[in-house]
Computed example of a mutant assay.
Amino acid sequence: MTTADTAANPLDVLAELFEGEGSAEYFGEAVTQAQHMLQAGALAEAAGAPPHLVAAALLHDVGHFQGAVTGRDLMEHGTDNRHSHTGADWLDQWFGHEVTEPVRLHVAAKRYLCAVEPGYHALLSEASVHTLRVQGGPMTEEQARTFASRPGARDAVAVRRWDDEAKDPEAPTPDFAHFRPLLEGLLKPGC
C-alpha cells in the first residue's frame, strides 16, 4: 500500500487499476484481467448475490495488480504470489471482512472444490490448472473439513464459481463505473 492509496478516494484508486493494469492479458485467458473481474462481479449481481458478495467477486483478483499489492509475474513463473491474501489485506483499509474474507479464501475454495466435488477439476481452464499446482493442489480431506468449517467458506465458494465462469470474451461486461454505487455503500466509515 502506498501513501497515495490512503489519501485518494478508494474508488478512484480501484478504477485506475481496472483501467490501467487491468487492461493487461490475464494468464493466457481470452479476457483481460479487468474483464475477468468485471464479469465475475456481473455474474454475482445477476445471481442476486448480496452487495458484499458482488463486491468480493468484482475485487477477488486485485492482488494480481502490481500497483496495488504484489503482481502477476510470480504466478506466471511458477511461484504463488498469494494474491488472495495480499489483495484481501490491501482491501481491508476500505472494506469490511464480509468483502475481504471471500477474496482471501477464493484460492482455498478452488483447492477445496477440487478435493470434494467430482468433475470440478475438469472444468478449470488451462491457466487455472497451472495456478492450482502453484497454489498447493487439491486439499487433503482434513484440509477440506477445516476449510468447510471456516466462517466465510460458503461465500468464498460462491465467489470461486463466478471466478471460474468469468472468462468469456463474448459476454457483455459492465464497466467499473457500474459498480461504484454498490462499492460506495460498502466502504468503511471515514473512507
Rank of each mutant, 00 (worst) to 15 (best):
L74R: 15
Q93H: 15
T100W: 02
L74W: 13
A109I: 06
G137Q: 03
F65T: 03
A57R: 11
D73P: 09
S149M: 05
E101G: 01
T131P: 03
V69I: 12
Y120F: 13
L59H: 01
L105N: 02
Q143K: 12
G136V: 06
L58E: 03
D61H: 00
Y112E: 09
A122M: 05
A127R: 10
H60A: 03
H52R: 11
R111I: 00
T131Y: 09
T70P: 04
G71V: 09
V134L: 08
V69N: 13
L59V: 07
V116F: 02
H60M: 04
A57D: 11
A115C: 11
D89H: 09
H64F: 14
E142T: 14
F65V: 06
H60R: 00
T140G: 02
E141Y: 08
Y112C: 06
W90F: 11
F147M: 05
T79S: 09
R145F: 06
N81V: 09
V116P: 01
H121Y: 08
A57V: 11
N81R: 01
L113S: 00
T140R: 06
V62G: 05
F65W: 06
V54T: 04
T140I: 07
P51Y: 14
H77F: 11
V116G: 03
R82A: 13
A55N: 01
E141C: 07
F95E: 02
E76D: 14
L53Y: 07
A57F: 08
T140H: 06
A108C: 12
F147Y: 06
E142W: 11
D92S: 14
R111E: 05
T131D: 08
S149F: 05
V99W: 00
S149E: 08
L105V: 01
V54I: 08
A148S: 03
A148Q: 05
T79D: 08
T146C: 00
G137A: 03
D92G: 14
G96Q: 07
Q66T: 14
H130P: 01
E126D: 15
P50T: 09
H85M: 14
E76Q: 14
T70I: 15
A68M: 12
T146R: 08
C114R: 00
V62Y: 00
F147A: 03
P102V: 04
H130A: 09
V99G: 04
H106I: 03
T86C: 06
G87Y: 04
V129Y: 08
H97A: 14
T79F: 10
N81T: 10
L105W: 01
R145E: 13
A49W: 07
H106E: 00
Q135H: 13
L53I: 02
L113F: 02
Q66L: 15
G136A: 02
W94I: 02
L132Q: 07
G78H: 09
R72E: 15
V134T: 12
V54Q: 00
E126T: 15
V69K: 13
L123A: 11
G63M: 03
A127T: 06
H97N: 11
G87F: 02
F95A: 00
G136I: 04
G78C: 07
Q93Y: 13
V69C: 15
H121W: 04
H106N: 02
A55K: 01
L124C: 09
E142M: 12
T131L: 10
A122R: 00
T70E: 13
D92Q: 10
G96Y: 05
R133G: 15
R82N: 11
V69F: 12
